[in-house]
Design a binder for these strands. Structure first.
Lengths: 242, 242
DNA sequence: CCTATAAATTAACTTTTGTTAAGCAGTTTG
DNA sequence: CAAACTGCTTAACAAAAGTTAATTTATAGG
């Protein structure tokens, strides 16, 4: 029972009965026992270049065969677990689509503590916002928490392509809108919810993330310390049975 | 002395000596006594249509005389103090540039409390993000805190214009980037700073705002209660003389 | 298999915030 | 002018979060 609590990061009743949905259980099992799903299967659905091409077609009606100029300029980047993708002081204007893995974006504060701004996984975009938006060296570090596969393009190169291929412009808008939507949602959560409520929401909406990432990064992203997150989880186990 | 404290929202030493810069003092005086500056002068610099045209020229090299199709579709909107610009449930996809005044964007929580997402003033954009990004009825209310002048355009109309005038596309990117930059900065402040530090920063960077807006909205935007903000300010007066 | 290391928990204590309610000052309204 | 109202402050108490440090629990390496 205790083992389950630690791995599942879920409330466990005093009786020892787990309160998990079938989907959640399957997710955990498939992670622990990949063999169950066949040798080459991968539980975490990886996002492919096809998704982006489909997206571009849906957004702008550009046929996948016509998007070669764009994807010719993109390159696939592989990162090892723990490897830094962007470091403090970098001036590159990298923009990437995560095909597989998790990237953590964080800043080192004056007192030496790290503050995690966000955790992004497959199907999401990451962008060096200091360099792209403000044209200043990055104050943030982007680091792979798992082996990561990226589809990367430099924002300057993208801008060049867009000059000759304005038909791809909807892709840039989609990227910006999606980044904006994410940020606004997080902003909203900070002014409307308590840390505990934010954690409950994360548990409900990004359950997979909680199981793949150390709690201390989750805590930091919620704006609290790991000690506080541990207490929140204890309160959730004992009292609120939701 | 007490009067000064209330109006200036600034630390007052026990001796009664005000700790304000010349600029700050002038700002307050000019607000209290507009007559000092002449009958038609306006201290808060209003942002004009010229600024937008200049911006478009800087960004894309489009001559101001060529931007008529764009500005023909924009309309000037006047709001009284306290008037709602966008209400809960609205489906319009309004996008506006604030020429004059302050707009507060807030949401009414389940318990009836209001949570302020942001306060925007002259020179900034506001946009109904629920309708524009998610195409869902607005959960937020946008309300004028002062008499407001807006330069408004519907996002759908803007998109139509952009189909025929792709040369204005940089304006949309600028707008999205700026909204994103603002959101990211606020997100960053929530994970790296305490409420007191966020208030100090607001005091340093948006001093004008603090004097034009009731504290309770500032508190809400910082993610705390008005009572807590009052205590923070008290701590700042007595202890930290910074 | 044992040890070193990192992550999470727990505890004790301090600080801060939330909550509720009372009071005060300034403004508006009848 | 008095009364109602709004916004800010203060107080008292409860709840939550920060801090530091010790302990337990995995994970990784030899």
């Amino acid at each position: 029972m205790l083992l389950c609590t630690l791995i599942l990061r879920l409330p466990v009743e005093k009786s020892g009965k787990l309160k998990v949905t079938l989907l959640q259980a399957w997710q955990v099992i498939s992670k622990l026992c990949p063999a169950l799903l066949g040798s080459n299967s991968n539980f975490y659905m990886s996002a492919s270049i096809d998704m982006l091409q489909q997206l571009l077609f849906d957004l702008a009606g550009v046929m996948p065969t016509d998007t070669q100029p764009l994807f010719d300029m993109a390159s696939r980047v592989l990162l090892e677990a723990g490897e830094a993708y962007i470091r403090t002081g970098d001036t590159s204007r990298k923009l990437a689509f995560i095909e597989q893995g998790i990237i953590r974006s964080y800043i080192v504060k004056d007192n030496g503590d790290e503050a995690t701004l966000f955790l992004r996984c497959e199907g999401q975009f990451i962008a060096s916002h200091d360099t792209i938006i403000h044209r200043q060296p990055s104050r943030f570090i982007y680091r792979a928490l798992e082996p990561v596969t990226l589809l990367q393009i430099d924002y300057d190169v993208l801008e060049d392509i867009l000059k000759n291929h304005p038909e791809y412009e909807p892709l840039r808008n989609f990227f910006l809108m999606r980044m904006l939507a994410d940020s606004l949602k997080i902003m909203e959560s900070f002014v409307t919810q308590s840390p505990e409520e934010r954690y409950r929401e994360l548990l409900a909406e990004r359950f997979d993330l909680i199981n793949r990432v150390p709690d201390k990064y989750i805590a930091s992203m919620l704006g609290i310390t790991p000690v506080s997150l541990s207490r929140i989880r204890k309160r959730m186990h004992t009292k609120g049975k939701s």
